[in-house]
Design a protein around this nucleic acid. Structure first.
Length: 559
DNA sequence: GCCGTTTTCGGCCCGACTGTTTTCAGTCG
């Protein structure tokens, strides 16, 4: 982990412990805000002054400096001594907050989810003030869920479910909000807003995808679906649609910042609108609300309180890359290796996307299970040339996805690589190398003059495999120096690079390629997820090589 | 704790739902 991430994690832990000890809620918020700002700060705080991070004042700066010195700070040590870590983890149980957690610990010695579960089962908490039978039953259920599936799902799963739910309901207006609309790579639960008669709630609860109704009210219904994901449906007044979308899209931190601005103008912003006293200033559209506050419209993926509010006020928001800006896909497979569609079918599907160029990049011989040979690759090149005549308006690029060996070398020597139009190089094995070895491995690949793009750089698989350990600062410096692009692999269980690393890479001057890594025709449209990652990192078309016109792209590829 | 075209002190977002405490606290987003 980067120093920033470690320091931020310690500060976040301190915020939680501080809340458990009954600390002032505003101070808790200050710590949380600063922790988030530090984690997202592009400069290494072990090098630059942490006081330069927004939300970090003298007191937090001192704590962070002590943390960088010795891996902790005095106040954190004190609170760790007072509250066992298990008590902090208790608040991960849904509906169990800091007040209840600390009461359970101080009055009953409960310091873990297991201990709580046992205490409830044994009846030790019967009759405790504030904990009625329903509350206890809910806590037991929450613990069970936490143990089973306390984790988030990737955006591909969440998006499909949201689209299924929206398609199943009749409404005048319906849309998803929340972290899904912000295009986060993982989603905890799905927020759907609707303008509809109240009967939509009963319809919603009756659908077969509902496994359990968690809450049922006039304005909000929460269910757990058969896939284990929570979906909240909210009915909002038509006249408040924009205010509701703005509010429920979040992030919470972004909304706090926006509301504070409203308050300073003597106004009030809620999910029902922007008000001056009783008078409605704006409510029907998000655009009106941002305009009334004197700022540019903030695209949802930017709404993370990461500087977008200031930029929007100054009219300095970047023009984000959009899905429609993509002129091609530079990483796709066919059934010559592990794809499931033929070359002709994949190219036809790429053409149907309206692309100006399309690269075929099947695997190379070092992934022996793919049974690729030079002869096969050259034969495919002939087929690509043949197909090119059928698509005069789309340039076909014959490429390959190379395998980066542990020593950083790739499948073929330079004289063969130079004949490909584009070379993607990726790590497919030896994920557990040390940070130093892994860093050298990637830098060597960047320094190969024929490697144009590093594919799915962290090799993570959300929910299955964590990112490899590497010094990304060093790798991105090498990529910027050698003109090697980093891929944003749009496959939703990869979303790789993740947006925080994209931001870091951009800071070093790296360019990006947003690729589908398609192994089948339906995968081509995953590009929308990759664009979401790019937008969260504030990328513009200038940062993304496959938004460029063909000439500029070919110059970058240097063939 | 942080922050300042309103402030160096006094604010810091706001509403819904649940369970249970017959008027509200805790939690969540």
């Amino acid at each position: 982990m980067r120093a920033n991430d470690e320091a931020a994690a310690a500060l976040q832990e301190y915020a939680e412990l501080f809340a458990l000890c009954g600390g002032d809620a505003f101070r808790v918020r200050s710590y949380q805000k600063a922790a988030k700002a530090i984690a997202g700060f592009p400069e290494d705080i072990s090098v630059v002054d942490v006081r330069g991070v927004p939300g970090v004042g003298e007191a937090i700066a001192k704590k962070m400096e002590e943390f960088l010195q010795r891996g902790s700070f005095r106040q954190l040590d004190d609170l760790r001594g007072r509250v066992p870590d298990g008590v902090r983890r208790l608040t991960r149980v849904p509906t169990l907050g800091p007040k209840t957690a600390i009461m359970l610990f101080e009055d009953y010695g409960i310091d873990s989810a297991v201990a709580l579960s046992e205490a409830i089962t044994a009846g030790r908490l019967d009759g405790v003030k504030g904990l009625g039978p329903k509350t206890l039953a809910n806590l037991l259920k929450g613990i069970e869920q936490l143990e089973q599936s306390g984790r988030r799902v990737h955006i591909g799963v969440a998006m499909s479910l949201a689209e299924q739910v929206m398609g199943s309901l009749k409404a005048e207006r319906i849309a998803y909000a929340g972290s899904l609309r912000r295009m986060k790579d993982t989603i905890g639960d799905i927020d759907i807003l609707a303008v509809a008669p109240e009967s939509i709630m009963a319809d919603f609860r009756a659908h077969p995808y509902v496994a359990e109704v968690i809450a049922a009210g006039d304005k909000k219904t929460s269910v757990r679906t058969t896939s284990g994901i929570q979906v909240d449906l909210r009915v909002v007044p038509a006249g408040s649609w924009g205010a509701a979308m703005q509010y429920f899209t979040g992030s919470k931190e972004h909304n706090v910042a926006i509301r504070e601005m409203a308050v300073k103008k003597g106004w009030k912003l809620s999910e029902y609108g922007l008000f001056e006293g009783e008078r409605v200033i704006a409510a029907e559209s998000e655009e009106d609300i941002y305009a009334a506050l004197g700022m540019r419209f903030v695209p949802p993926p930017m709404r993370e309180d990461g500087g977008e509010v200031k930029a929007a006020l100054r009219g300095e928001l970047p023009v984000l890359v959009e899905l429609s800006d993509l002129k091609g896909d530079l990483h796709t497979h066919t059934n010559l290796t592990d794809g499931v569609a033929s070359l002709a079918d994949m190219v036809a599907a790429g053409h149907a996307q309206g692309y100006a160029y399309y690269a075929v990049t099947d695997h190379a011989p070092d992934l022996t299970m793919q049974r690729m040979t030079l002869d096969k690759a050259l034969e495919q090149r002939g087929q690509v040339a043949e197909l090119q005549r059928k698509y005069p308006d789309m340039r076909l690029l014959h490429g390959t996805e190379l395998n980066i060996a542990p020593d950083g070398s790739v499948d073929w020597p330079g004289e063969i690589l130079r004949e490909f139009d584009v070379c993607v190089a990726s790590v497919h094995s030896h994920f557990g190398m040390s940070r130093e070895e892994m860093t050298r491995r990637f830098i060597a690949a960047c320094e190969n003059p024929y490697v144009d793009i590093i594919g799915h750089p962290t090799t993570r698989k959300i929910g299955k495999r964590s990112a490899v350990d590497a010094d990304w600062d060093a790798i991105f410096r090498a990529a910027a120096r050698t003109g090697t692009a980093m891929e944003i692999d749009s496959f939703p269980d990869r979303s790789d690079l993740p947006s925080d690393l994209v931001r870091l890479a951009r800071h070093h001057g790296v360019k990006f390629s947003i690729d589908s890594d398609s192994h089948a025709i339906p995968h081509l449209v995953n590009q929308r997820f990759g664009v979401g990652v790019a937008q969260r990192a504030w990328l513009t078309t200038d940062d993304v090589i496959n938004t460029w016109p063909l000439d500029r792209l070919l110059t970058f590829l240097g063939r």
